[in-house]
Amino acid sequence: MGSRSSHAALIPDADSLRRETGFSQASLLRLYHRFRALDTNKKGYLSRMDLQQIGALAVNPLGDRIIDSFFPDGSLQVDFPDFVRVLAHFRPADDEDAGLRDPREPEPLNSRMNKLRFAFQLYDLDRDGKISRHEMLQVLRLMVGVQVTEEQLESIAERTVQEADEDGDGAVSFLEFAKSLEKMDIEQKMSIRILK
């Protein structure tokens, strides 16, 4: 009889990952099985091609950008702990836990601020800490495809950057980005079904 605890022993640093990501032991176990299912060649890590098998990412216009986030600094593979850390950004926020959190502990990966940081890096293509009009235009092209003319996209990108750009430098900093999204329910909008 395979007990849950014996399965959890298969997961490297399960207790540490649970604390860091907020996933329950049962969720970590499901993610571990999903990770192993995606690792079709049983390499012990995932490649970009392995992640492209995830249906929710395949149909997401920003799917390639999200997949890029699994491979920071040009890495070509992602291990299970890093896989879970990235996915934690898409876990719904625990509103009831926010007031009980020890302020000396790191902010949860699924907090509003960390979700915003993650979203910001999807737009900040050159990683310079700012979203330029050109970067906004590139992301808009991905999101709307051919449904909108290039002139309309350029107008939307220009207006979006102008509205968020409080210091007038022609780009959107992370703080400006966060402020422009303060009324959006980012905690619920940023979710991906990964277990199917």
Rank of each mutant, 00 (worst) to 15 (best):
L57P: 03
V78P: 03
V86R: 08
N114F: 01
Q152L: 08
P72I: 13
R133K: 11
E135R: 14
D128T: 11
N41V: 15
S191G: 11
Q52M: 09
F83N: 04
R34G: 06
P61S: 06
P12R: 10
D13I: 10
L153S: 02
P106E: 04
L195G: 04
L142E: 06
P108Y: 03
V78Y: 02
D39S: 10
R91K: 13
R30D: 03
V144A: 07
I156T: 09
Q77Y: 10
Y45L: 06
G2L: 07
S180A: 08
K115Y: 10
V148L: 04
K115Q: 05
N110G: 09
G22C: 05
P103D: 02
A98C: 02
L57H: 10
I156R: 10
D165T: 12
L195Y: 07
D79P: 12
P92D: 00
P81C: 12
Y32P: 03
I11G: 01
A171E: 04
R4M: 05
R18T: 02
R193C: 06
A58M: 01
H7Q: 11
S69W: 04
R18I: 01
S111F: 01
R159H: 03
H89T: 15
S155I: 10
S47D: 06
Q52R: 15
G145A: 05
D50L: 06
A119P: 09
V148H: 07
K130C: 07
S132C: 06
S47G: 11
Q77W: 08
H134K: 12
T149N: 00
E163L: 12
E158C: 11
F174E: 03
S191Y: 14
F80Y: 10
L125I: 14
G145Q: 07
D95V: 14
M49W: 11
S16V: 13
P108T: 09
H33N: 13
A171K: 14
S24N: 03
A14I: 07
R48E: 07
E96H: 14
Q52G: 02
L137K: 14
E182L: 13
D126N: 11
P81Q: 09
Y32K: 14
L140D: 03
G129D: 02
Q162C: 04
A164S: 08
S5I: 13
L17D: 00
A56M: 08
G74I: 15
F174V: 09
A119L: 11
Q138M: 13
T149R: 05
H7Y: 13
Q162K: 14
E20S: 14
K115F: 07
E135I: 15
Q52I: 05
D94T: 12
P61N: 06
S24V: 01
F177G: 04
S6C: 08
A14L: 01
Q188N: 08
L17S: 02
A56S: 13
Q121D: 00
S24R: 04
Y45T: 15
D15P: 00
I67Q: 03
K179G: 07
T21C: 03
E20I: 04
V161F: 02
F174P: 05
K130L: 07
